[in-house]
Computed example of a mutant assay.
Amino acid sequence: MTVPIFQVCAADPAVTALLGTGPVRLFPFGNAPQGVQLPYCVWQTITGVPENYMDCPPDMDRHALQVDVYAATGAQARQVVQALRAAIEPHAHIVSLNGESTEPSTGHRRSGFDVDWFVTR
């Protein structure tokens, strides 16, 4: 019942062209390793809800994910966001765009979005 965001994005050539391979710089739990190469992406589950029915147990869960991209420039962050959205949208719903900012301690540019992903049990 894990959201397949890594598998979907790691299989997309546009994403791996920007986030690399071995490893793909797409990290769970909202944390990236110290000193990781830019650009990179972190994601985390914000909440999850089973799809409850009156006559039977749930057969799927809806996971709300937060996806954040960090890059050296705003243009690079936007490019990665665009590639991630194109990879994810055939499988899940982008439900919000979370704006852009600059991390005060590093100067890295951040851009992100939220995803609702339905996962069959």
Rank of each mutant, 00 (worst) to 15 (best):
I88F: 06
A64T: 11
F113G: 06
G99N: 13
N52D: 14
V81Q: 07
W43C: 00
P33S: 03
W117Q: 05
I46Y: 13
L18R: 04
N31V: 15
P28T: 03
Q82W: 15
A10L: 00
D12T: 11
A92P: 01
R85N: 12
L97D: 08
Y53D: 09
G20K: 02
A17V: 02
A72K: 10
Q34D: 15
V36R: 02
T2M: 10
G74K: 03
P23N: 10
W117K: 07
A75F: 05
A71W: 05
L38M: 13
G74V: 15
P13I: 12
P57Q: 09
R109P: 15
I5K: 13
P50W: 05
I94C: 02
Q76F: 07
L84I: 00
H63D: 13
A11N: 04
A17I: 00
Q37G: 15
V80P: 01
E89D: 09
D59E: 08
T73H: 02
V119L: 05
T47R: 14
P39W: 05
G35E: 13
N31Q: 14
P58L: 10
E103S: 09
P39Y: 13
L19H: 04
G107K: 08
A71P: 01
V49N: 08
P33N: 05
W117C: 00
F113Y: 14
V69T: 03
R85L: 06
L19T: 05
A86I: 04
A64M: 08
A87Q: 07
E103A: 09
A86Q: 10
F118N: 14
T102Y: 01
L65A: 10
R109H: 15
R25Q: 12
M54T: 15
R62K: 14
E89I: 00
T2N: 10
A10S: 14
T16Q: 03
A14E: 11
V49Y: 06
P33F: 13
G35S: 06
G35R: 11
V69S: 00
V119E: 15
V67N: 12
D61T: 11
H63Q: 12
A72G: 07
P57Y: 05
S111A: 15
T106Y: 02
V115Y: 08
A86R: 14
I46K: 09
P39H: 01
G20Q: 01
A83D: 13
R25I: 03
Q37N: 10
G112F: 00
N52F: 07
I46G: 12
